[in-house]
């Protein structure tokens, strides 16, 4: 995964409420949930408290891992780019990848692993297709820097920018099916938002194997 020393200057992970709310709404109570790149366990804690979920997190950053333990969240310190080798097939009802997709070395391999381990996958990612992003490139001729992609090109954890349209093709290609699409437009969640690829800051998809 990307360099750990880079400060996260997007909405702090713990305050990504809109995104977390969407994910929490998608999850059936009492299920087993694996959260990849779980940070300090905010989402898993909410899932445990609000949905009685049996959660497990995967995180690489040591301080976050320790914070998970302090919160009573079960956690594994692993690098997602090494795959999910230890996790048995279909051992979780949901596997979540929140705000981490664009930071992976091989998103395709990780997604395939997620679909092997979970019955359903939930993925949220910043949309590189947003019109403001596109305009920066088109008008100014610069690599875009904005609220969803705040880092300069030469030092960014977002090594794989992806648009909502790209993501739809990508899921088809790796043999998955998008069951639901929720978009965050102007910080408001909308189911299948109109012209999402150009208007949404974030995409959030519920995916299952075909």
């Amino acid at each position: 995964m990307a360099s750990a020393d880079l400060p996260e200057i997007r909405t702090p992970f713990d305050e990504f409420e809109v995104g977390f709310n969407i994910i929490i709404d998608l999850i059936t109570p009492g299920t087993r949930v694996l959260d990849l790149g779980c940070g300090s366990g905010t989402l898993l804690q909410r899932l445990r408290d609000e949905k009685d979920v049996e959660g497990c997190g995967v995180e690489l950053e040591q301080e976050s891992v320790i914070q998970c333990v302090e919160r009573g969240i079960r956690v594994m310190k692993l690098d997602l780019d090494d795959g999910l080798g230890g996790f048995p097939d279909l051992s979780y009802e949901y596997v979540i990848l929140s705000r981490t997709l664009q930071q992976l070395m091989r998103p395709d391999l990780v997604l395939k692993e997620m679909m092997r381990v979970g019955s359903k996958c939930i993925i949220t990612f910043p949309n590189f297709g947003h019109w403001k992003v596109a305009l920066q490139y088109l008008i100014r001729g610069r690599v875009p820097q904005c609220s969803t992609h705040p880092h300069p090109w030469f030092n960014t954890p977002d090594i794989h920018p992806v648009t909502i349209s790209d993501f739809r093709d990508f899921i088809k290609e790796i043999g998955g099916k998008i069951e639901r699409e929720i978009h965050i437009v102007g910080n408001v969640p909308r189911e299948d938002a109109f012209w999402a690829n150009r208007r949404a800051e974030w995409g959030c998809c519920l995916i299952s194997a075909v």
Binding site: V69, R74, V75, M76, K77, S91
Partner: peptide, 8 residues
């Protein structure tokens, strides 16, 4: 499928 946590 045991309840295991791992910290390196």
């Amino acid at each position: 499928k045991k309840e295991v946590a791992f910290i390196e």
